[in-house]
Design a protein around this nucleic acid. Sequence first.
RNA 1: GCCCCUGUAGCUCAACUGGCAGAGCAGCGGACUCUUAAUCCGAAGGUUCCAGGUUCGAUUCCUGGCGGGGGCACCA
Length: 479
Amino acid sequence: MADELLAVRRAKLDRLRADGIDPFPHEFAGVEPVARVLAAHEALQPGEETTVAHRVAGRLAARRGQGKMAFLDLVDRSGRLQLQARQDVLGEQLHERLLTQVDLGDIIGVDGSALRTKRGEISLKIERFTVLAKSLRPPPEKHHGLQDVETRYRRRELDLMGNEAARALFITRARIITAIRRALDEAGFVEVETPILQPLYGGGHARPFTTHHNALDRDLYLRIATELYLKRCIVGGLERVYEIGKDFRNEGLSTKHNPEFTVLEFYEAYADYNDVADRLEALVTSAVAQVGSRGEIDFTPPWRRITLRDAILAASGVDFRAHAQRDELAAAIGDRLPTQGRTWPQLVDDLLSTFVEPTLQQPTFLMDYPVEMSPLAKAHRSERGLVERWEAFCGGAEIANAFTELNDPDEQRARFDAQARYGAEGDDEAAPYDEVFVQALEYGMPPTGGVGLGIDRLVMALCDQASIREVVLFPALRD
RNA sequence: GCCCCUGUAGCUCAACUGGCAGAGCAGCGGACUCUUAAUCCGAAGGUUCCAGGUUCGAUUCCUGGCGGGGGCACCA
């Protein structure tokens, strides 16, 4: 019974204290990662012992043997190391304490000397050990790990503790982000932090979360994007800026959507959407170089670039450019999609998500979107009615979105007015008018290319994970 | 919000067509100085998610609820 398991561990805690041992000491200096110990003794022959001293620390993960010699497995963030406990080394009292008062799951520190056992495993012969933190609850099952999906998400610490693959994945995630940050820094970008609490949300098409500031007695929104603030940094002359952080969207949960998600946005003055496409390829390439890529997707540049029009035409036979009127387009679609009550831009989006998006397994840029779908993008230099925008897809999902940024303040004002009309017609995701942003453009923003990249989606693609919950440490769940 | 699947010991999983709820790991007692999913002996461990219903009898079938997973819708 659970209570008995807890009581046993409590009793051992009391026993340690009774023996004058602090089960929660303050520090344990000079610890080496176990991977370094293993690497240092590769050359040892089976049965060979050394006097090379090492100090390691970590969680006790397994124990074999209960007699005068026992083997223990110690796990730290770098790996797993076998410890050899010998009564003739430790003495009867300490040996007994190690085997009876120390439990699986306890954090212990060990001083010992390296050897390779007769069976060939590099190990540390325990000369001294220290309880660094007594574990009062039983750890996950030692060889199946923690399997229950709900518990893995809700109690991620147990998932990380019990499942090597989970630890490895989140380390990989961190390395991907580091690689991207380094590549941007090396390209002369300035990392900035813009408000998460915003008086007005903007930069995307989504419903926001609302919160309240007591002292100001006013509602604030959690940002849905960093776009408008980052462009104000461009206006101010920073020229190359980026931010990596959380955006929040008040929408449903799915394997591809978490209400808070990590996004990279970067803006580059004097660049257009073609230039920033090249840069995104380069960023992802540096991430792949750091961590490799599991799965079927080949991120080697250049990625396929195809216009949205040609992609939809090839997949569905419908040319949305030939049907500028809503009813005409609906007629061309016929009964392949429900068209009732859908607007022209929504129909284009339906064609994209139904016929094209699922087929985009390998990295692909879809170029040139209708202006109605893109209030912050600059008009296409040669195609009337389109803007210079692309979205990047892989594994059947969108990972990035970019445009040549609209920097004409009068046109931006007109685009906001159009959004306001959509809002009045009932689109509760229409972008709100942002006068401060438009005034910033009036001071002059250089021609600029900007990109938003979904970090969680990228990690999913690089790590071959089907659910965003596998790549977010603490995903949103129902209570 | 809708559809499908799912919930059994601390953990990982069994339990035939409705017939005494079981095993492994962990824990407990014991044996063991080169084990590595250590092994062996012994004893224990349960509100089968919750509430009803059908039945002589429900982990099993039915209804409702709660939680989870997947899909749809939503979501650029």
